[in-house]
């Protein structure tokens, strides 16, 4: 891992469902990557991460995930985060299925 800061979103797994959630600019949690807040400043990102870690009653394993801005909002900048944002490739399960209904 490079120690240089890359633009990031704050992400975690939901305690109850186990699914992936993202911190939004309003301070809430969304299940959609494009609704996440994109941090361009390291100090602000780390402060947001600390705040997320202070919510252990609904989140597990918060961390900063590399992301970049896109036309519809932040996009994952690593393939692992693309899979987390979408779901498995062998079945139409996870987020990709939820978005269809």
């Amino acid at each position: 891992m490079s120690t240089r800061f890359t633009t990031s979103v704050v992400t975690a797994n939901d305690l109850f469902e186990g699914d992936v959630v993202y911190l939004t600019p309003q301070g809430g949690w969304s299940r959609i990557h494009a609704e996440a807040e994109l941090f361009t400043d390291q100090a602000a990102a780390e402060a947001a991460l600390d705040a997320a870690n202070a919510q252990p009653d609904r989140l597990v394993g918060a961390y900063l995930a590399p992301a970049r801005s896109g036309p519809d909002g932040p996009e994952p900048a690593h393939f692992r985060e693309e899979f987390r944002a979408r779901g498995p490739s062998n079945y139409l399960h996870g987020k990709q299925a939820e978005r269809m209904c």
């Binding site: 797994n13 305690l15 699914d19 252990p56 394993g61 987390r84 779901g87 498995p88």
Partner: peptide
Amino acid sequence: GNLTEEEFRPLRLMNGLYLQLHAY
């Protein structure tokens, strides 16, 4: 909220429960 994740994790693992990419 009476157990932290640090406290709960070893207990759930002892019972075969992992947290993976998209779900438990």
